[in-house]
């Protein structure tokens, strides 16, 4: 490993199922302490990538390094240091939450005393201390998901990999769970998460990679991508009372950092800019003699970036 701070590194990683290529020559570099989102629609190869990183599926070709280990040669070292939350998490329903965790602790070779203290700590942290002696069969989806996190905290992982962590959660539970992810990220653990719900996870990810049919098409911070794909990362909307439309448009057009401007119905002006030009735009409207009724700013979502990008890609292919 050439860089101390790269905790997950893949090079030309490829997985084929027969003739079908699920992951195609993937180069991924994840740095210590970051929260990285592996985003893309269903079937784009996210789960396959994760399984190869964990050594649970054999790559067809290419290499993986996790904390400097090769998951195929040193699966035990990798699995002792990486916590994994599968996309469909299951527990032994006939056992209690605590009993489920004890099994995992023992599989990790922890002593009884160590196991019990870590289990108490993890259950406490996930807010499951009260229900620790209840059978998991009675748990809600959200509770299971938190138990899944408690489960992987037992091994005190340096890296946590979560596959579709918000899938099947109601919006409130999803929000709570995203907070948990954020907290884990803040505590210094490197997190790799996958999701097909781009809008949901964009705020917790430091960096995202957008996947499409086994390829990583785009990568960077959300702002970064917005900049590259949409041109402007900020979309500002102004509504006026309709007077002086001509001179307002001219005034707005002369603002710095503006990448596009158009007029919509009901006297809306929509402008895209590379910086937050809200106050300058408001001033410009005023100077042109307009009457500002509303001013909104939209920070573009990953969904938009994604949709826009693939529209372009497909147009380019047709052309």
């Amino acid at each position: 490993m050439n860089d101390e701070n790269l905790v997950i590194e893949t090079h030309n990683l490829t997985k084929q199922y027969g003739k079908f290529t699920a992951v195609d020559k993937l180069d991924l570099q994840i740095r210590r302490g970051e929260v990285y989102g592996l985003l893309g629609p269903n079937g784009s190869g996210k789960t396959t990538t994760i399984l190869m990183i964990l050594g649970l599926t054999e790559p067809t070709s290419g290499s993986v390094r996790v904390l400097g280990y090769d998951p195929e040669r040193n699966p035990l070292s990798v699995k002792a240091r990486v916590g994994y939350l599968p996309d469909q998490i299951g527990f032994y329903d006939n056992l209690t939450a605590r009993e489920n965790l004890i099994y995992i602790a023992k599989l990790n070779g922890l002593s009884r005393i160590e196991a019990y203290s870590r289990i108490d700590e993890a259950l406490e942290r996930m807010g499951l201390a009260d229900v620790s002696n209840k059978h998991v069969g009675a748990f809600s989806r959200g509770m299971r998901q938190r138990l899944g996190v408690a489960d992987l905290l037992i091994k005190r992982p340096q890296i946590i990999i979560m596959d579709e962590p918000t899938l099947g959660l109601d919006p409130e539970a999803a929000r709570l769970f995203l907070n948990i992810i954020r907290e884990l990220g803040d505590s210094g653990i490197t997190i790799l998460l996958s999701s097909h719900l781009l809008y949901q996870v964009q705020e917790v990810c430091d960096r995202v990679g957008l996947f499409h049919r086994g390829h990583k098409m785009l990568e960077g911070t959300v702002d970064d991508l917005a900049q590259r794909v949409l041109g402007g990362a900020f979309r500002i909307k102004l509504q006026t009372n309709g007077d002086h439309a001509q001179s307002i448009e001219e005034a707005l057009r002369s603002l710095p950092d503006i990448t596009s401007l158009r007029q919509g119905d009901n006297h809306w002006f929509v402008l895209e800019a590379t910086s937050d030009v809200r106050s300058a735009a408001a001033n410009a409207v005023m100077r042109a003699g307009g009457d500002l009724k509303r001013l909104d700013i939209e920070i573009p979502s990953l969904d938009e970036i994604y949709a826009q990008y693939f529209e372009e890609v497909e147009h380019a292919q047709i052309a």
Partner: peptide, 14 residues
């Protein structure tokens, strides 16, 4: 079917 297999095999065992 209980979906416990991947979680168990993600522990440091073969």
């Amino acid at each position: 079917n209980q979906r416990t297999l991947s979680r168990v095999l993600a522990q440091p065992i073969y």
